[in-house]
Design a protein around this nucleic acid. Structure first.
Length: 559
RNA sequence: UGGGGAAUCGUUCAAUGGUAGGACGCCGGACUCUGACUCCGUUAAUCAAGGUUCGAAUCCUUGUUCCCCAGCCA
């Protein structure tokens, strides 16, 4: 991790940890954990949590566990576990041998539940789900005690054992903590801690038909792992009294402490698992790794780098304010990293053929072009030049405005790394009037040199040699949603951006790109950063994803 | 409506009774064989009203707005 990835000022969580350390809590240890449920792919919001938890562990010479919080078999799978492991690792973090599963604690959690029953702190309730809801009361009215609340301990023990044995149907009984049905905090109104669910678990199979609830399993899993600071998001703030209730009753010695921070919201996208799953299941995107998705796997395929994402997670900070981070900050971090590390290359997206009339028909020469203008250590490559070239259609205008520094009628322009060429004439399609071809001449003396007569040629454009270039498909991405905060809309699906993907098929990449490896990134000069698609790109048919465009101050002028 | 949280430039994070600062964005300029990068400059905020204090973003009072909670999800 680089220096820039370390925050300059403490956030409130690190303040709390400093305080705990200063009063000698937890024997001076710091232990965190990243606890995703394996029921979906992780996204940039999870990345914030990953960076926070692993970052704190590293900073305090502590540990951070990776724990799969798999207490509800519905929707959980090994596919998701594998994706999470891959994604967290790809982000650059290491949990050593501390990969844990809440499902590995089922037996211990069961014992904890029995202990609670024995203490008179839990009971088996036989109300239906609807009845439990009714008995719970509302925000303004207290709940009512369940008629089963004072079931004798022996009977509770017996019933709970039979629940485990599978003697009862789903929903027939639940185990509840005996707390306070009149609590102003609804979480504390005798919360359910075990439910019967005849659902095979992806890891424990059919061994269990009862599963612990989050509130019970999570805090005790933390305690079992010796977690000191259990960092979670704001919506669990109401659950903290319950977290403490279980831990105080069942755990001796050092107890974990829950701290809540504000989850990340990113403009022009959605970051809730439910909505992301919907996008995938309704085929509104091409899968979890669709480059438009804010998932880690989607961003990887798009061409975002782990360092860029980590820097972003530091830049957004950690606080308790609800936030909506402008996606331009993420793009800034991506450009910052790629500008530094991506080699340059040339690729013409929308080709316009140019003939250099005075260039010998059979001649070819190689130009040696630096891979990075500020970093000679990145080397250079040979770029072939010949009589027939392609340039970008946007780089020619028949009747350009004065500030247009490119090719136009009567104009001159520098071909990047090669000669200055001068416009001679254009060929148009008779029917459409569209310019189909340009005739130019080159100034032989300007090879890697300014014009001898001192004339100023301002424009520099990219180009490829028709005879040497490689055909390519280039996928241009734009924000997935047209609404700044689609998650806040009544129906987020209605705000999908119809133009979030544009596929360009007739592109031409410079010859050196023929060897481009999957996932490698380049800056296509004057266009943006592009990444070789890991799934679809082939040696004979290159496919590039645009990671992010270059900042474009000309676009503003041209408005 | 009961409970739990949060309010600082457009966005976001800081300032922990003593000059309201950084980042992104915006705008302007310099440089440039990428209209990129880099550099320089500008813009712009303490939710409101009272109070305490030599001094308040910070403490007190009252109010306002926003978020979360009534899954056998996490």
């Amino acid at each position: 991790m680089t220096e820039s990835e370390t925050s300059l000022t403490n956030d409130f969580i690190r303040d709390i940890i400093d305080e705990d350390l200063s009063i000698g809590k937890n024997d001076g240890k710091v232990a965190t954990r990243f606890p995703p449920e394996p029921n979906g792919y992780i996204h940039i919001g999870h990345a914030k949590s990953v960076c926070l938890n692993f970052g704190i562990a590293k900073q305090y010479q502590g540990t951070c566990n990776l724990r799969l919080d798999d207490t509800d078999p519905l929707g959980e799978s090994m596919e998701y576990v594998e994706s999470i492991i891959r994604d967290v690792r790809w982000l650059g973090f290491d949990w050593g041998n501390r990969l844990y599963y809440a499902s590995d604690y089922f037996e211990k959690l069961y014992s904890f539940a029995v202990e609670l029953i024995k203490k008179g702190d839990a009971y088996v309730c036989s109300l239906s789900a609807d009845e439990i809801r009714e008995y719970r009361g509302t925000f303004t009215e207290p709940g009512k005690d369940s008629p089963f609340r004072n079931r004798p301990i022996e009977e509770n023990l017996n019933m709970f054992a039979r629940m485990r044995q599978g003697e009862f149907a789903d929903g027939a009984h639940v185990l509840r903590a005996k707390i306070d049905m009149a609590s102003p905090n609804i979480v504390m109104r005798d919360p359910i801690i075990y439910r019967i669910k005849r659902e095979p678990h992806y890891r424990t199979g059919n061994k269990w038909v009862i599963y612990p609830m989050y509130d019970f399993a999570h805090c005790l899993s933390d305690a079992l792992e010796g977690i000191t600071h259990s960092i979670c998001t704001l919506e669990f703030e109401n659950n903290r009294p319950l977290y403490d209730w279980f831990v105080e009753r069942l755990i001796e010695g050092n107890r974990p402490r829950q701290i809540e921070f504000a989850r990340l919201n990113l403009s022009y996208t959605v970051l809730s698992k439910r909505r992301l799953i919907e996008l995938v299941q309704k085929n509104l995107v091409q899968g979890w790794d669709d480059p438009r998705m804010p998932t880690v796997t989607g961003m990887r395929r798009r061409g975002y780098t782990p360092a860029a994402i980590r820097n972003f997670c530091v830049a957004i900070g950690v606080a308790k304010n609800d936030n909506l981070i402008d996606v331009s900050l993420l793009e800034h971090c991506v450009r910052e990293d790629l500008n530094e590390n991506a080699p340059r290359a040339m690729c013409v997206l929308r080709p316009l053929k140019v003939l250099i009339d005075n260039y010998p028909e059979t001649q070819t020469e190689d130009f040696e072009i630096a891979n990075h203008p500020q970093k000679p250590e990145m080397g250079s490559r040979k770029v072939p030049f010949s009589r027939v070239l392609y340039i970008e259609r946007d780089d020619f205008m028949e009747d350009p405005p004065k500030k247009y520094h490119r090719l136009g009628t009567g104009r001159e322009v520098r071909l990047r790394g090669a000669y200055i060429i001068k416009f001679k004439k254009m060929v148009k399609d008779e029917k459409t009037g569209e310019v189909t071809q340009l005739h130019c001449t080159y100034d032989e003396q300007t090879r890697n040199a300014p014009p001898a007569d001192g004339r100023k040629v301002q424009g520099v454009i990219h180009w490829v040699s028709a005879a040497h270039c490689a055909p390519a498909e280039v996928r241009l991405y734009d924000r997935l949603f047209s609404s700044e905060n689609p998650g806040a809309e009544e129906e987020f699906i209605n705000f999908l951006n119809k133009d979030s993907l544009e596929v360009l098929t007739g592109c031409f990449a410079e010859a050196s790109l023929k060897d481009a490896q999957p996932l490698s990134k380049y800056q296509f000069e004057r266009l943006g950063y592009f990444c070789v698609d890991e799934k679809d790109s082939k040696a004979d048919k290159l496919v590039f994803n645009r990671v992010v465009a270059l900042r474009d101050s000309w676009a503003k002028v041209a408005r």
